[in-house]
């Protein structure tokens, strides 16, 4: 079963008010984002619920959801750690950092630690290229990364 929390419901009201009458499907991405914030990933039940709210089929919700890389359709760790691997970060040694983090967490890119705490992912350019190498943890930026800073950031994840 999936249900939006009370806090989410308050957000939904505000979100729906952004779009004109008859155009509420515009709220699809924001609602998917809310559902993911609640559950960590987008469950089939959440797709059904969102479809109901916006008057579209669950299959439609799924087709949109899978187009965008930020939605997970499988469970992920409590902290999703992403490293940009694009050109400016690569010129600044992101590969070494990623390898360092893989060793530290004992997992490969794309995997989740057995305790479900961390998922490690590669990411395309995160628009912070002048502060490369760039990492995000649960969508929060960490820039000018070094192995020491990786240690600090991961230690602050509890």
């Amino acid at each position: 079963m999936f249900a939006f929390t009370e806090a989410s419901e308050a957000r939904i009201e505000k979100i729906l008010a952004k779009y004109p009458e008859g155009r509420k499907i515009s709220a699809l991405l924001p609602l998917l984002t809310l559902a993911q914030a609640q559950e960590g990933y987008i469950t089939p039940e959440a797709m059904v619920e969102i479809g109901k709210r916006l008057n579209v089929s669950p299959a439609y919700v799924e087709s949109v959801c899978t187009f965008y890389t930020m939605y997970y359709t499988k469970p992920v760790g409590k902290y999703v750690v992403k490293f940009c691997i694009n050109i400016s970060c690569h010129l600044n040694g992101c590969d070494n950092l990623l390898e360092y983090t893989e060793k530290k967490l004992g997992i490969k890119e794309g995997e989740t630690t057995p305790d479900k705490k961390f998922t490690l992912l590669k990411e395309e350019c995160l628009a912070a290229c002048c502060e490369a190498p760039v990492m995000q943890v649960n969508n929060k930026y960490h820039v000018n990364m070094t192995p020491e800073k990786v240690d600090q950031v991961l230690a602050s994840c509890r």
């Binding site: 694009n86 050109i87 400016s88 350019c125 628009a127 290229c129 002048c130």
Partner: peptide, 8 residues
Amino acid sequence: DESEPGTC
């Protein structure tokens, strides 16, 4: 949307 690699 700023996603062009290099652009920030």
